[in-house]
C-alpha cells in the first residue's frame, strides 16, 4: 500500500494540538499518581505503566467520538483516559471499590466503561483484536458511522488472534483500526527476537489492508495516521493497521528491573519523553502560552488528586457481589 506523502498529510489545527496535549497530561499525571499510590501501599495491584506512550491514544482519540469504541489491554489505562473515561470511577476500580467502573470486580487489567466507549480490557495478549472486529461489525450492521479501535502491543502481533483478526476485518471490510503500540519489548523479549519482520506494518500487505509505521511519540505524525485510518473506516473502505513506534519507561510491570535492555538504550529512549517535547513545541509554534499550559496542568493535577481521594474513600464491595454479574440473574 502506498503511504500518503508526508507533505499531503492532514495536520492537526491549534485546537486539536492543545486537545492532544491535554489528554497526554491527564494520562501522565494519572500514571504518576498511580505509581505513587502503589509505592505508598495505598494501591495493591499489578501495574503495567504506559508512561512514554501517551501520544498514541491521545492523537487517536481526538479523531473519535464518544460512541466510537475501543478494546484495549492490561497496559491500557492511557488508552482509556485518552478516550475520556472519567477518573473517579477509574480510581475506585483500581482500588477495588464499589464505585469503580466494574464495582471493583475487574480491577486494573479489566476496566470497562461503555459510556466512554471503553468496551473491553483484556489481560490476554492478542484478545483485543477479534473483539474489536465484532464491535466494528455491529457498527456496520447498525448503519452507523462508528469505528472500533483495537489497541495492542508489538508482541501481540505474533499470536494467532492478530492474524485471524486482520484477515477477517479485511474480508468483511470492517470499520476497525488496529493500533499496535510498538514499545520494542514483549515482557523481556526484544522485538527482533520474537518478530519475523522489521516492521509490523508490513504484515498488513498479507491481509490486503493499508499498513503504516509512524513515530508514535510525534503527535502530528500520529494524528495524521489516525485521521486517515478513521476517515477510511467511516467511509466504508475497511480496516487499517497502524504501527506506532514508542517506548515504555517503567518496564513491563511496575517494579521489574530492566536487565534485558542496556542503560544507554533506555536513557536514549527516555530522552525522547513526548511530554516535554510536545510542550516546548506548542509554545515555540505559538499554539499555546506557557501560562495557559501551566493552568491546564494545575487543573489536571487537581482532577487527578480528587479522583484518587474519591477512589480510596469509596467503600469495598459486599461479599454478595460474588454472586452478582456472573449471569444476568443473581446466583442463588
Amino acid at each position: 500500500m502506498q503511504q500518503t506523502p508526508v507533505s499531503n498529510r492532514p495536520l492537526p489545527g491549534p485546537e486539536v494540538q492543545r486537545d492532544i496535549y491535554r489528554r497526554m497530561v491527564r494520562i501522565e499525571r494519572n500514571d504518576e499518581a498511580i505509581r505513587r499510590a502503589i509505592k505508598l501501599g495505598r494501591l495493591q495491584m499489578p501495574y503495567y505503566s504506559a508512561r512514554g506512550q501517551e501520544v498514541i491514544p491521545s492523537a487517536v482519540s481526538v479523531n473519535l467520538n464518544q460512541d466510537d469504541t475501543i478494546c484495549t489491554i492490561y497496559r491500557g489505562i492511557h488508552d482509556m483516559v485518552a478516550k475520556g473515561m472519567p477518573l473517579r470511577p477509574l480510581w475506585a476500580e483500581i482500588a477495588g471499590r464499589i464505585d469503580g467502573t466494574c464495582k471493583g470486580k475487574g480491577g486494573p487489567m479489566h476496566l470497562t466503561h461503555p459510556e466512554s466507549g471503553v468496551m473491553v480490557t483484556t489481560g490476554i495478549v492478542g484478545s483485543s483484536m477479534p473483539i474489536a472486529n465484532g464491535l466494528a461489525w455491529a457498527a456496520k450492521l447498525d448503519g452507523s458511522q462508528r469505528v472500533a479501535i483495537a489497541y495492542f502491543g508489538d508482541g501481540a502481533s505474533n499470536i494467532g488472534a492478530f492474524h485471524e483478526s486482520l484477515n477477517l476485518a479485511s474480508v468483511w471490510k470492517l470499520p476497525v483500526i488496529f493500533v499496535c503500540q510498538n514499545n520494542r519489548f514483549a515482557e523481556h523479549t526484544r522485538y527482533e527476537v520474537g518478530t519475523s519482520v522489521d516492521r509490523i506494518a508490513k504484515r498488513a500487505i498479507g491481509y490486503g489492508m493499508p499498513g503504516v509505521t509512524v513515530d508514535g511519540n510525534d503527535p502530528v505524525d500520529m494524528y495524521a495516521a489516525a485521521f486517515e485510518a478513521v476517515e477510511r473506516a467511516r467511509a466504508g473502505e475497511g480496516p487499517t493497521l497502524i504501527e506506532a513506534l514508542t517506548f515504555r519507561f517503567f518496564g513491563h510491570v511496575f517494579g521489574d528491573d530492566d536487565k534485558y535492555m542496556t542503560k544507554e538504550e533506555k536513557a536514549a529512549a527516555m530522552e525522547r519523553d513526548p511530554l516535554p517535547l510536545f510542550r516546548a513545541r506548542l509554545i515555540a509554534d505559538g499554539i499555546a502560552t506557557e501560562g495557559a499550559l501551566a493552568d491546564m496542568e494545575t487543573a489536571i493535577a487537581a482532577e487527578v488528586d480528587d479522583a484518587m481521594q474519591f477512589g480510596l474513600a469509596s467503600p469495598l464491595p459486599p461479599i454478595d457481589e460474588l454472586r452478582r454479574d456472573v449471569f444476568a440473574t443473581e446466583i442463588a
Binding site: Q44, M45, G96, R97, C102, K103, G104, K105, G106, G107, P108, H110, L316, P317, I319, E321, L322, R323, V326, I331
Partner: peptide
Amino acid sequence: APYSPVPFSKPLEAAY
C-alpha cells in the same frame, strides 16, 4: 471456590 470468576477486590478475593 464459589461459582464466580476470580474477583479483583481484596475482600471478594478473600471470600473467593
